[in-house]
Design a protein around this nucleic acid. Structure first.
Lengths: 261, 261
DNA sequence: AATCAGGTTCCATTATGTGGAACAAGATGG
DNA sequence: CCATCTTGTTCCACATAATGGAACCTGATT
């Protein structure tokens, strides 16, 4: 992965954001030099971009001259989250589903080819809840992702799938567009999507699509569990409940659904 | 509040972000027209800025043509949060302080003239934890804010205070820079900051500063409680514990502290 | 002391964003 | 039912703002 894709037609803004993106996806703090390597821009230019981002509070310099995302992003995100109507409406339903199954329940939406998790309900209080909210995963190897894809118009789904770079996380990860499309058909028939250890070994889930009437928001919810505790059969037994919960959420959405309630 | 302050010297980026800011701080969804009113820009220009923001996933259009913050911000924020070293280091200490007092414990840092909350530990599990993280409050009427200000170099503190627009939230809200500076002196002497119902009636707190050696990060932690349950005297009895916790966190910070551990 | 890599500043050039005006599409109302 | 207003979108000549090369710091390293 040499250099970050620079969104071609959003000009200056796109370049700035792609700097953020590089920093966000780096596993460890990046210094100026590291950035310069990953982003194909002259040193001077990059330096100014960074300065601007810092001035705006979107980026922070650490004493050791490495960079991290700025706290202003946290502030924005808190607002984005609390204003999100889907999350708000879904919450009681997620709780109910968790009560029923005793396993972790996720709510996520498609953003391009990624799933972004909006909420999570799990038993073990020890695990910090917010740790997961806002995280993202590829759409082709998660239940929520495949559920979200399945309710897109076929051409839209294909367009997105064309952008996917299929990485084989596990033995069972779907290897290509063809396999994925086949599964989307299956999901459309049954109304349920499964992740059979396709993203992480030992973890599987059953999901169902959640979407607005106009498909401007598509995603899904899932019940996730470790294989050692919950069998495939047991998982399948929740399929109807998951679907019912998804339907209940959809029914609660205002006709003209917006991210704010 | 007619129009949003546009950061003058970050050019295009600044303008784009100020659009986000307007949307973020609006209590209800804004339509194109509302934005055009609040942002002093020609319609055409604004329209393109919005389009770019949408394309970058920083903004979303709702079916009813109102706008909300995009989910990509959530993703960025999740990373920003999980990479934040201060939060990570502070967490066990916050828990311990919560165990001791039984009341809500906050950790926040100064960002300009605002406090941004990084973490929160509270008893009532019913309240969603992440609801508060990332929220912000003015620095002049919160314990954490005043604590953070108190450890800034005097001239820096004064510079920031000069930017404050003192709004009288309650009877006891500090009315002006002079009063605030006087209190900062007091905090420097005692090592503890108080919010005596200065932000919300019926809520008070005791706080202590947390900061890096070079003061590049300053903030504080606080124990917050409703007045009806916890007396001023009781609050004061925790002052030493709060200070000790703050010291413990500072001691745990790497010498070259960066937001990442 | 000399060299080098990392980081920052400057400024002429040019690409990019700007904003006025024209256009489209609903509302409103006379 | 047509006229008019209000809201939202597109276009393009122009000016501003981003660009990137080069010069310049600074502190390691030899």
């Amino acid at each position: 992965m040499a250099s970050a894709k620079i969104s071609s037609d959003t000009g200056t803004l796109g370049k700035a954001i792609s700097v953020l993106d590089v920093i966000a996806s780096a596993p460890e703090p990046l210094r100026f030099r590291d950035l310069a390597n990953q982003i194909d821009q002259p040193r001077g230019t990059l330096h100014r971009q960074i300065s601007n981002l810092i001035e705006e509070g979107l980026l922070q310099v650490n004493p050791d001259q490495s960079y991290s995302l700025g706290l202003r992003l946290l502030k924005f995100a808190a607002q984005s989250w609390s204003q999100n109507g889907l999350r708000e409406i879904a919450e009681p339903h997620l709780r109910a589903l968790h009560e029923l199954t005793g396993e972790t329940v996720h709510l996520g939406v498609l953003q391009g080819t990624e799933v972004i998790y909006l909420d999570k309900v799990e038993s073990r209080q020890a695990v910090r809840m917010h740790s997961q909210v806002g995280n993202s995963s590829p759409c082709y190897c998660t239940g929520v992702g495949k559920a979200g894809l399945s309710v897109l118009p076929r051409d839209e789904a294909e367009a997105r799938i064309a952008q996917i770079n299929f990485h084989k996380f596990t033995e069972t990860t779907l290897p290509n567009a063809k396999a994925l499309l086949r599964e989307l058909d299956e999901i459309n028939r049954t109304g349920n999507a499964y992740d059979r250890e396709e993203h992480e070994p030992g973890i599987h889930c059953v999901a169902a699509p959640v979407f607005t009437a106009d498909r401007s928001i598509t995603g899904g919810l899932s019940v996730t569990a470790p294989c050692y505790r919950i069998s495939q059969r047991q998982l399948e037994s929740w399929a109807d409940d998951v679907r019912a919960t998804a339907q209940a959420i959809i029914a609660d959405l205002p006709v003209k659904m917006g991210p704010r309630a």
